[in-house]
Amino acid sequence: MKTSRTVLLTLFALPFMALAGTPAAQKPAAKPTEATAKPGQVQEDCPHPPTPADAKPASGWTLTRGEVLKGAPAVTLAELLAKPQTHEGQTVRVEGVVRKACQKKGCWMELAEGQKGAGVRVTFKDYGFFVPVDSAGSQARVEGVVKVSELSEDMAKHYEAEGAIVPRGADGKPREVQLVASGVELRR
Rank of each mutant, 00 (worst) to 15 (best):
G119K: 10
R187E: 06
C107D: 09
P50M: 11
C102V: 05
K83L: 06
A164T: 04
T76R: 06
G60H: 09
L151V: 06
V177P: 00
P52I: 11
V131E: 13
A78V: 09
K70I: 01
L14W: 04
A29E: 13
G89C: 02
V98A: 03
L80Q: 10
K56H: 08
W61A: 07
A74E: 15
V177K: 01
P32C: 06
A20R: 05
Q26P: 00
E95K: 03
G172S: 07
E95N: 10
K38D: 14
G169Y: 02
T3Y: 02
K83S: 12
Q178M: 04
A112P: 05
V120L: 08
V142D: 10
T3M: 00
G40I: 14
E88T: 14
E113V: 04
E143N: 09
G21P: 03
A53V: 11
P174D: 04
K100Y: 06
A20Q: 09
F16R: 01
K100T: 13
K147I: 13
C107N: 09
L14V: 12
K56R: 12
G128N: 14
Q139Y: 14
R99C: 02
Q103C: 01
V180C: 03
V180P: 00
E176K: 01
P167V: 07
C102R: 03
L111R: 01
T6M: 06
H87T: 00
Y127N: 14
L9Q: 05
M155N: 11
Q41R: 08
K147P: 02
Q41I: 08
D171Y: 03
Q26G: 00
L111A: 07
A118R: 07
A55M: 10
T51P: 03
G40A: 10
A181V: 00
K104F: 11
F16Y: 14
E79T: 10
P23W: 08
A13Y: 00
T64W: 01
M155I: 09
P50T: 10
L8K: 06
M17N: 00
L69T: 04
K100L: 15
A136Y: 13
E110D: 11
L63T: 06
V133C: 13
V120R: 05
A35P: 06
D45V: 10
V180I: 03
F12S: 04
E67Y: 06
K56I: 10
L8W: 04
A29I: 08
A164M: 05
Q178H: 00
D54V: 05
A156D: 07
A55Y: 05
S135C: 07
Y159M: 12
K147F: 15
L186W: 09
R187Y: 00
R99M: 03
R141L: 07
V94Q: 04
K100I: 04
E160N: 10
A30E: 12
A78S: 11
V166P: 05
K70V: 03
E150K: 14
A58H: 06
K83A: 13
